[in-house]
Design a protein around this nucleic acid. Structure first.
Length: 403
RNA sequence: GCCGGGAUGCCCGAGCGGCCAAUGGGAGCAGACUGUAAAUCUGCCGGCUAUCGCCUACGGAGGUUCGAAUCCUUCUCCCGGCACCA
């Protein structure tokens, strides 16, 4: 527990390093000067079961607030998830079922605790207040804004202009989540850069409810492993914070060079100046990009699994991609009884889960992607005796040992 | 309620009676190159099958036809316009 808070200026420096926007700028310092623990809201909509490195960026910022003695107020958007946040969407969002939401919420909450401290943490499901609102209260809430204002928002504006549908329920989303700020009396709200508009709506609604409006603080959106689109489970370009060390290391290594600076800053937690200096050393040739990416991978794995696991992950990586040796732990499968005598390799690959169908297995063989103990195979059928005890491999990183 | 337009493979998007498992692009996968980067080149990209081929698939259900993603009927959903109500 922190008894006395750091001077406001110092806190400000710590809290705003690497953030995207603070709005309004001066208000954050003023709030910090109050000298009391601030209530820092972060709303999470459990719309997917996994917490990604991208999502972790904002959690890690929240953690910074906690470490400085402030209170993290985590809003579990169990109610709003049913509505569906239209942010950044160019089309109507599908809604989730209650069962999905509660399952996702449980797993996310569990994972979030890897990043947040359990001290100075409040978790509040927004169904608590949104789910019990009556029509009067709802109407009162809707009177805090106007259609014109809602239409100012980029994605709505575009859809409106393009004559795409905007459902009323989506229109409600911004004010519903703004209501969360009122309910928890937020001093500050954090979010991704795409959430800024929503966070500002929170200010507006708070002041209508005679509360001091919150300060909006947003973090940049981390690009995914493809280096272009934002990291998202729906694009399958993400790394889960629970990803196994070797997987995590490998995936980081596949991130394009251009994204490295951003990843140092957002995923590895480097300060703006450190991230920038690493990047400039790469671009002026003082640092080798490949080695730098190793450093990045090590840093990230260290955050979630510890230094030892990171070293181990790097070793495993080298074994595979530098020494072209086999990984240490390989899953074993037994040859199905139906393949006594002669083994139909594509089916065996499918059985082992290395490919999704016999046809794909067959294609992989044809393309020279299948190796048995490191030796490329060209035929689909082999005597069972030839495969038993050996390692079957598809591509660079899918292996099974045949028992 | 009426009139018109639309629904195609992971996504976008052609096709508009047989030559369509369905052009093209994107994503993805594999190979070469390499730093599991980028760029580039090559191949693959519904399932089963050694091959011939078979099956499933063009929103759902029926129908016409030797033959349908393509025509007809109907249903569902979307998009526009008009009307109705206020």
């Amino acid at each position: 527990m922190v008894d006395s808070l750091l001077p406001a200026q110092e806190q400000l420096a710590i809290l705003t390093d690497g953030v995207d926007t603070v709005m309004p700028q001066e208000a954050l310092l003023e709030k910090l000067r109050l000298g009391r623990p601030l209530r820092v809201k972060l709303g999470v909509d459990p719309t997917a079961p996994d917490v990604t490195l991208g999502w972790a960026v904002v959690f890690r910022l929240l953690r910074r607030f906690q470490d400085l003695g402030h209170t993290a107020v985590l809003i579990l958007g169990d109610f709003t998830a049913l509505v569906g946040d239209p942010s950044g969407k160019s089309e109507t969002r599908k809604r989730l079922s209650e069962q999905e939401v509660s399952a996702y919420a449980a797993s996310c909450l569990d994972m979030i605790k890897d990043v947040l401290s359990e001290e100075r943490l409040e978790v509040r499901p927004n169904s608590e207040w949104l789910g019990t609102m009556d029509m009067h209260q709802l109407l009162e809430l809707t009177s805090t804004t106007t259609v014109a204002r809602l239409l100012e928002r980029d994605d709505f504006a575009k859809r409106f202009a393009a004559q795409q549908p905007i459902s009323l329920i989506e229109f409600m989303y911004p004010i519903l989540q703004a209501m969360d700020s009122v309910a928890v009396k937020a001093d500050i709200e954090l979010g991704g850069a795409d959430q800024l508009w929503n966070l500002l709506m929170g200010r507006q609604v708070q002041s209508r409810f005679d509360q001091e409006p919150q300060v909006a603080v947003t973090v940049p959106l981390l690009v995914g492993t493809d280096g272009t689109r934002k990291m998202s489970q729906s694009y399958d370009n993400y790394i889960s914070i629970r990803e196994a060390p070797e997987e995590m290391f490998g995936k980081v290594m596949s991130v394009p060079d251009e994204a490295m600076e951003q990843w140092f800053l957002l995923a590895a937690g480097y300060s703006e100046s450190d991230a920038a200096s690493v990047a400039s050393e790469v671009s002026n040739g003082t640092r080798h990009p490949g080695d730098t990416k190793r450093l990045l991978a090590r840093e990230i794995v260290t955050i979630y699994h510890g230094a030892e696991a990171a070293t181990e992950a790097e070793r495993a990586f080298d074994r595979l991609f530098k020494d072209h040796a086999l990984p240490k732990d390989i899953r074993e499968i037994v040859v199905p009884a139906s393949m006594e005598g002669e083994v139909f390799v594509p089916a065996l690959l499918a059985e082992a889960g290395l490919v999704s169908s016999n046809g794909e297995g067959r294609r992989m063989i044809k393309q020279g992607a299948v190796k048995l103990d490191g030796v490329r195979i060209e035929v689909e059928r082999l005597p069972k005796a030839d495969v038993v005890g050996k390692v079957l491999q598809v591509g660079k990183r899918r292996f099974v040992r045949i028992a």
